[in-house]
Amino acid sequence: MMNLAAYLFISLVLFLCGIIVIIARKNIVAILIGMELILNAAALNFVAYSRYVTHHIDGHIFPLFIIVVAAAEAVVGLAIVIRFFQIKETIHIDDATQLQS
């Protein structure tokens, strides 16, 4: 039961959920939540392959950097969201049509 396919399947489900959230939601924070799911799916794939295929520690290093990048992305993204809300008083993605306020 615990084999590569199971992990890949879980990763696939996470990825699909993330994609659906990104497509269906119009709230910018919800879109960021979907992106976290996708990043997690990728990281899980790395670790699963490192355990079952390559047997090398590099597969554990890459998720660390994925987590770092996810943290940076979340912080900057949410800062932009808050700034956007101050200007437009909405966080609907369709209202974000201008590069300059």
Binding site: M2, Y7, I10, L14, E36, N40, A43, L44, V47, A48, R51, H60, P63, L64, I67, V68, A70, A71
Partner: peptide, 21 residues
């Protein structure tokens, strides 16, 4: 996902996941 990391033997990653996320 942190629990899945544990089952894959990646304890550092599981702890990092909890800490950062």
């Amino acid at each position: 996902v942190a629990g899945l990391y544990l089952t894959l033997g990646a304890d550092t990653l599981a702890a990092t996941q909890l800490l950062v996320y």
